[in-house]
Design a protein around this nucleic acid. Structure first.
Lengths: 343, 343
DNA sequence: TTGTAGGCGTTATCAA
DNA sequence: TTGATAACGCCTACAA
């Protein structure tokens, strides 16, 4: 048996007033008598009235719902960003729909369209690895009013606000720290160069080397993904070289972990013989018995700020001006045992 | 400048047909000529038509959207369940709205109401620690058609399907394993007894002791939360006893980790002097240099099955029957270094 | 202070 | 095969 929800129409019938009065009373309209308001409120409660946001949204054009697309939701970084986003937006009455792209541009595009159909008020995206064609994003921008905001993994597109961390700086500081600890032959485990974040980490590494007059050696840049296994195998092949590295700056904590495991396996000493720094400050990096240095990306904050950029843009928009923001957060280097050679 | 979305009305005007025809053509209605369908499809594409799900939902009463409420989204367990949920439901056209209760019953109730306003087709909840009054949940059940499904952290309420793991079994197997490894004075770090999952873990531990004729010692049950710090302090005070424990079965991986850290600090040997097992199979448990044994809860699977229970209930409902399901998944014990004393 | 009525975009019923 | 129209539940001019 299907239960019917009570509507303002039901309340109006019961109280012998018009639906308009009920609607206004419920919305605390100034020109409704206190008495009526109380009457309506009582009836609403008694009849277990629940406002239908669908109808409201259809009328107002605002769903008070936003969408967020990430590669996978069950990673520390992305789930933390989403946590921040939810905590920033929820108090303002916004719901958050989550979508996974599985790091695939085709799925990402599909999810984007689904969100558009759902009439979300804003779409937050951290793009997938193989996203390159941004034409459909531009088309959405030019044909709809739905703002798109990129966080972390972005592309530069006019009209799209972005919230990122300063990957270059994080990488630079990490490399600089290794140099200051006396490491001289520093390798970099580089991530997918289709993504700006990994380009910036690589460049930060390179610039630190240059600034400290260390030679840039092409072979010291190893392309890896971000799995433990790739870290292990990268380390394995590195150690077969005649000239061995004395430090690793990895663009991923997982490859850094893989490297640590293999280093232990090779009976080399961390941090005496070789230093290691990762990136992301995954929880496990500090849990390890030999804790791993890493660069923190403040993901919860990134989520909150992303949400805030949207909220602010709504305010701005009321005055007809839409400002494109490019916010860059500062990462924090956490120095732990894996790279602290000097006491 | 505000861009207007094209509607079926726009298409109907352009093609000089009725909106009904457009709607039917778009929905591939059998009694529309192929010619018209193609015409409409072409116009829709050209005019960049995007269906408004809001209007559709208002009409049909189905939003194709579900809500999920968890304490916090950025934990491995909950984000993994949500991943599974999204992956099960997304192919069927459902969107997933995520809400955080911050482990607080009052917020949980608020989120529940928001989801109801949003007209979601189903609500998935893992209840907060201090949830006790289930009256409002029962009221929702009796006054709305919105199904509620509990996963992991549940209460038994008629009409609500639940998906859990067999915590008793997981705890029993963990304890049994410790016993078989020769440990005799096994302590339990128990979680919040307001939650069934922790009750069950405690009972599994107790039953294993009984079955193996080991004495049940009340002082060996330590109430902790699930933080590293509590694990450390619990271990600290345990080691001040005259009769010291030789194993810990913790209801949480984090307290287990804390115990391990303190054990190392006390210069005791794992697993020779003391064995440790946690619960949840958090990623870090296997990353540790001294890997920690733990009970895996298969969270992604739990999410998928939760989604599936909902999908099945829709099918069932078409025949007017709504079946309340109580599904219990089997956990898997992962034996690692922290508890493997015998070779 | 309150009521009437139109419209948001879709689908479905009843006609044609 | 197609068209006209009502309805989903709400809000809001415009009237009264």
């Amino acid at each position: 048996m299907t239960k019917k929800n009570t509507t303002i129409y039901d309340i109006s019938k019961k109280l012998n007033v018009s639906v308009a009065t009920v609607s206004r009373a419920l919305n605390n309209h100034p020109r409704i008598s206190q008495e009526t308001k109380e009457l309506v409120a009582a009836a609403a409660k008694e009849m277990n009235y629940k406002q239908n946001n669908l109808a409201k949204a259809l009328k107002s054009g605002e769903t008070k719902t936003v969408g967020v697309i990430v590669p996978y939701i069950n990673t520390n970084f992305f789930s933390s960003v989403i946590r921040g986003l939810e905590e920033e937006l929820s108090p303002h009455g916004y719901r958050v729909i989550i979508c996974q792209s599985h790091d695939d541009a085709a799925i990402e595009k599909k999810q984007l369209n689904t969100l558009l159909h759902t009439q979300v008020d804003c779409i937050f995206i951290s793009i997938s690895r193989n996203t390159s064609d941004m034409e459909y994003v531009k088309k959405i921008l030019s044909t709809t009013n739905t703002p798109i905001i990129f966080f972390d993994r972005k592309k530069d597109i006019p009209g799209i606000s972005t919230i990122t961390i300063d990957d270059h700086k994080g990488a630079y500081q990490a490399t600089e720290h290794l140099i200051q600890q006396g490491y001289k032959n520093i390798c970099h485990f580089a991530g997918d160069q289709n993504l700006e974040i990994y380009q910036n980490r690589l460049n930060g590494y390179l610039d630190a080397l240059k600034d400290y007059k260390l030679p840039v050696i092409k072979e010291n840049i190893i392309n890896t993904g971000s799995s433990i296994e790739e870290g292990i195998s990268a380390m394995k092949s590195l150690w077969k070289r005649k000239v061995k590295p004395d430090a690793i700056f990895s663009a991923s904590d997982f490859t850094a972990l893989g490297a640590c495991k293999e280093i232990k396996n090779l009976k080399i000493k961390i941090p005496e013989d070789i230093g290691v720094i990762g990136f992301s400050n995954e929880p496990f990096t500090q849990f390890m018995e030999l804790s791993i240095s890493s660069v923190d990306q403040t993901p919860v904050l990134m989520g909150k700020i992303s949400g805030n950029v949207f909220l602010e843009s709504i305010k701005d928009n009321s005055s007809g001006i839409s400002i494109e923001k490019k916010l860059v957060l500062t990462p924090t280097l956490h120095i732990r045992q894996s790279s602290k050679r000097k006491k």
